[in-house]
Simulated scan of single mutants.
Amino acid sequence: MTKLTLGTHPHMLGFEQLERLLERSAKSGNEGYPPYNIEQTSDLSYRITLAVAGFAETDLSITVEDRQLVIRGRQADDGEGRVFLHRGIAARQFQRTFVLADGVEVGEAVMENGLLHVDLTKAQPETIVQTIKINKG
């Protein structure tokens, strides 16, 4: 029995790119840091919230690369010349990626109390009915 994938299913035409996005998302290497929430704020909007305590706005970057939202954090290690008896808070970098569907746009990003909020909006899809004329052969 042949395994059907999204891109090879006979009734799913043109979904090869979606399959590649799913594979890339699975391989993105997202670890558990930093923790995050995704909430639906309305029928057409979402908010991603990352816990980024210790990061300043200048330590963070948010980009959209090939339909992926990429959030990166990089802190400078200011531990030189300091003597730590215990160091449980490390200067740690991260990269979190989220695959965006067509029509999803990244809006505002806000830092608040150690949380980074990134708002997303989804365009209302238009219902299009197209009639195809049948020609005589």
Rank of each mutant, 00 (worst) to 15 (best):
T5Q: 04
G7T: 06
G7E: 15
G7L: 03
H9D: 14
H11Q: 09
H11P: 07
M12G: 08
M12E: 12
G14H: 01
G14M: 10
F15G: 03
F15L: 12
F15V: 11
Q17Y: 14
Q17R: 14
Q17P: 01
E19V: 06
E19M: 06
E19G: 03
R20T: 10
R20C: 09
R20D: 10
L21K: 12
L21G: 06
L21Y: 08
L22G: 02
L22A: 04
L22P: 03
L22I: 10
E23N: 10
E23R: 04
E23D: 09
R24Q: 12
R24K: 12
S25E: 02
S25W: 06
S25T: 08
S25R: 02
S25F: 06
A26V: 00
A26N: 05
A26P: 02
K27W: 00
S28H: 07
G29F: 01
G29H: 08
G29N: 02
N30D: 09
E31C: 10
G32M: 00
G32R: 03
G32K: 01
Y33A: 14
P35G: 15
P35V: 15
Y36W: 12
Y36E: 01
Y36I: 01
Y36K: 00
N37Q: 08
I38L: 14
I38Q: 10
Q40I: 09
S42P: 09
S42Q: 12
S42M: 09
S42T: 14
D43K: 06
D43R: 03
D43M: 05
S45C: 00
S45T: 04
Y46N: 01
Y46W: 15
R47G: 07
R47V: 13
R47W: 04
I48E: 04
T49Q: 08
T49H: 04
A51G: 07
A51T: 08
V52I: 08
A53C: 06
A53R: 14
G54K: 11
G54R: 02
G54D: 01
F55R: 14
F55C: 14
A56P: 04
A56I: 13
A56V: 12
E57Y: 13
T58D: 04
T58K: 02
D59M: 15
D59R: 15
D59E: 15
L60D: 03
S61V: 05
I62A: 05
I62S: 07
T63E: 02
T63M: 05
T63G: 07
V64P: 12
V64T: 14
E65D: 08
R67Y: 02
L69V: 07
V70S: 03
I71N: 03
I71H: 11
R72F: 13
R72L: 08
G73M: 03
G73Q: 02
R74G: 06
Q75T: 00
A76D: 11
A76C: 07
D78I: 13
G79Y: 12
G79K: 10
G79T: 11
E80M: 02
E80C: 11
G81M: 07
R82D: 05
R82S: 05
V83S: 15
V83T: 15
F84E: 09
F84V: 01
H86D: 06
H86M: 05
G88W: 15
I89F: 15
A90M: 15
A90P: 10
A91Q: 09
R92V: 00
R92I: 03
R92Y: 04
Q93K: 13
F94T: 05
F94K: 07
F94P: 05
Q95Y: 11
R96I: 13
T97I: 13
T97Q: 04
F98P: 03
